[in-house]
Amino acid sequence: MARDELTGSRAAPPQGNLFRRRSWQQLLPERIIKITLILCTSISILTTVGIVSVLLFEAVQFFGDVSIFKFLTGTKWTPLFTSQQFGVLALVAGTMLTAVGAMVVALPLGLLSAIYLSEYAPDPVRRTLKPVLEVLAGIPTVVYGYFALLFITPLLRGLSEDIAVFNALSASIVMGIMILPMVSSLSEDAMRSVPRSLREAAYALGSTKLEVSTRVVVPAALSGIMAAFILAASRAVGETMIVAIAAGQNPTFTLNPLVPIETMTAYIVQVSQGDTPNGTLEFRTIFAVALLLFAITLLMNLLSQYVVRRFQEEYE
């Protein structure tokens, strides 16, 4: 038959398996590597889960004793006094006051330096300036804290006697300087990703450099710039050392930046460093405050991601 002829003309098929079986000695290293990698990844995830559950666990116990409504709406915060009051708004006001103050400093300066770096600075200048600006982000915050207390505050008090030694203003200014590189660097990245063709289109219509920057580049990069702002604000809300050192430890429900206040973070430092006994109601307050702080910063980070996704322009 033809089939026999065909098969006969071929080389004989190999006997047994074509491929060597992989032995367990060969498979083992792969397994070990995979498991190690999974373990490493889980550490960070488990830590987050652990922190959140501890916060929740302690906070739930706290809210067993203190009404969550009174906690969120009260304006007097005196858990360490004999007449205990748990109005967290006094701390929230302190946090918002310093954070908003920091943003007032960082937004205009950050945006203007981003415009300069992205649109005006010649290449060599940008390549030198940007890393220098980013060095600001590497300064330990405790240094900023003492810079606020020992340098900015005396300056401010030289201007007006009414300013207290510990005040929100000084902390805000220094915190603004601290988050400035974040705002300018992220905004500059967003602005530089605006295609060159859009700038050319604007120039070809007779725009000056300023018009190109403010009417084309900034609007086109707005989603990235807004995300940078929100991230920086969230950083300011969570910042601890500067406000703990320079802003005071007086929970005050006020918008006056010249008097001592206390932020949520500074309060947590105060209690955890103090002699408040573990397991008491006073001690548990820091978990309730921390949970609220965590919720606020998480919300802001989510908002920033949403802004980027929602308002991102498809250029081409």
Binding site: P195, E200, A201, A202, A204, G206
Partner: peptide, 25 residues
């Protein structure tokens, strides 16, 4: 005036694209 190789409208409305030049002018 100039027209480029790839269409490069601004990420703005149709109206604002056309009005851009006159406005800055």
């Amino acid at each position: 005036g100039m027209v480029f190789q790839r269409p490069n409208p601004f990420p703005k409305s149709v109206f604002d694209n056309v009005a851009f030049g006159p406005r800055i002018n």
